[in-house]
């Protein structure tokens, strides 16, 4: 089986993009570490290459950085790809892909709500699952909740 063209192109076209070692990724989907400044361009490029379906978007707190993970799929060729973006934990900002994939809207709001990742260019970046007066971001590893009557 020959490697699809986009897998080589993505590294050539976007400097700083690195393939993630397959030992870490157990699901067999090719994964790339992408620089935060290029994520919008990479998603746009992949969309033109047929990756028209955003399966999933979520974020993880790795204590020293945040990682935002995009799982994209091409419904025609059934190919899948994972994009991983490490962002600064002190200033967690990343371009929103909602203009390209409107389905990312609520998923970005969820990442903002639970982890505090700020997606710039998002049309309505407000809390979605928690109430609007909630303090802190629960899915951060250093989040400590106030003890309640059961503690």
């Amino acid at each position: 089986m020959t490697e699809p063209r986009y897998l080589n192109d993505i590294k050539g076209k976007f400097p700083g993009t690195e393939a993630v070692l397959p030992e870490k990724i157990k699901d067999g989907i090719p994964a790339f570490d992408c620089p935060p400044s290029l994520i919008l361009d990479i998603v746009k490029y992949l969309k033109a290459e047929g990756f028209n379906y955003l399966m999933n978007l979520c974020a993880t707190d790795y204590k020293d950085t945040f990682e935002v993970i995009y799982h994209l799929s091409a419904l025609e060729s059934k190919a899948k790809i994972t994009l991983k973006v490490k962002i600064n934990r002190e200033k967690p900002e990343l371009a929103s892909i909602t203009p390209l994939h409107p389905g990312a809207n609520w998923q970005e709001r969820e990442a903002f709500d639970l982890l505090g990742v700020v997606f710039t260019g998002h049309p309505n970046l407000t809390r979605i699952l928690l109430s609007c007066d909630w303090e802190g971001y629960p899915l951060r590893k250093d989040y400590s909740r106030k003890p309640d009557q059961y503690d």
Binding site: E23, K24, I25, K26, D27, I29, M55, N56, H71, T82
Partner: peptide, 8 residues
């Protein structure tokens, strides 16, 4: 073991 997976 340490690692990650996205299962559909």
């Amino acid at each position: 073991p340490a690692g990650e997976a996205y299962i559909r």
